[in-house]
Write a protein that binds this DNA or RNA. Structure first.
Lengths: 141, 141
DNA sequence: TTTAATATTACAATGATTACAAATATATAT
DNA sequence: ATATATATTTGTAATCATTGTAATATTAAA
């Protein structure tokens, strides 16, 4: 769970990605922050300790990580791409109140319609919108 | 299935939406074109017979329809909001090749994790990405 | 028909993302 | 170690979808 920079460099190399400093930092951020950050959130945090970082590099790096299946893109709302380094199957819940995106376990095998029989299925995504328990309690006051 | 303008006007009125000409045309388009159009696609087609239409009106109308549960927003890719007048539960498949979005049947009740027990669930979405059967055949040439 | 309320329009503003070319860094061969 | 080639990063500008706003038009009510 607590990957060192060396672990991350090895991880990238295994996917034939050159482990540059920026790429390691971006991947490290994504591994440590499981809150499905946007590109902008990643950039804002990382630029503090890596002042030369550009947002383009964040986007470039995420594209590379996604192509190599080291991360996934989650699209719940238009105009808000979020990233997730957890590649194990799971669903996403977005709270309409506090905007937080959380994970929940789900068996993706149940998503299997006969209508898709002749299709090549590459990715399955499940997302749920609503109000999280925290916000439910706060609303009642 | 083939709703007349009057049917649509009645439909809107039942949801307390004033059935203006633009709103009827937008709803009519969405009911007739089940291919999950973007706001831009709707605008481009409708402006031909309704030259004064503005894109803002399409967005405004869609916001109203969604709030009244007469349509839903589907978000598969970032930067591409699509709309669907089919409110019955179903999943969406997007072909990475031809970009077409199609429906497939799915029982949404299976999406029900204990982790969501204390949450207020308002919407459940399932989407799948891959290659459709048509494109699979074409690719083999 | 006049008035008031609501809807629509046109245009500007925003914000996320992408394109691109220059600059920098890294790796390879000599 | 130096020169060369290659890959990476950067900064800026361009693009594109969406939203905000104020003026105008339409509709509904009196």
């Amino acid at each position: 769970m607590n990957a060192t920079k060396d672990d991350i460099a090895r991880m990238l190399l295994e996917s034939n990605i050159k482990p540059s400093y920026s790429r390691i930092k971006v991947m490290e951020y994504l591994l440590k922050n499981r809150n499905h950050p946007t590109a902008d959130e990643m950039y804002s945090h990382l630029v503090k300790e890596l002042p030369t970082l550009s947002k383009t590099t964040v986007y470039n790096t995420m594209d590379i990580l996604i192509k190599s299946k080291l991360a996934q893109l989650i699209s719940i709302e238009d105009h808000e791409a979020r990233y997730d380094a957890d590649m194990a199957p799971h669903g996403h819940f977005k709270c309409e109140e506090c905007k937080m995106v959380s994970d929940f376990p789900i068996d993706m095998d149940i998503i299997n319609s006969e209508a898709l029989a002749d299709y090549l299925v590459k990715e399955k995504h499940v997302y749920v919108k609503g109000i999280c328990s925290n916000c439910m309690i706060n609303n009642k006051q």
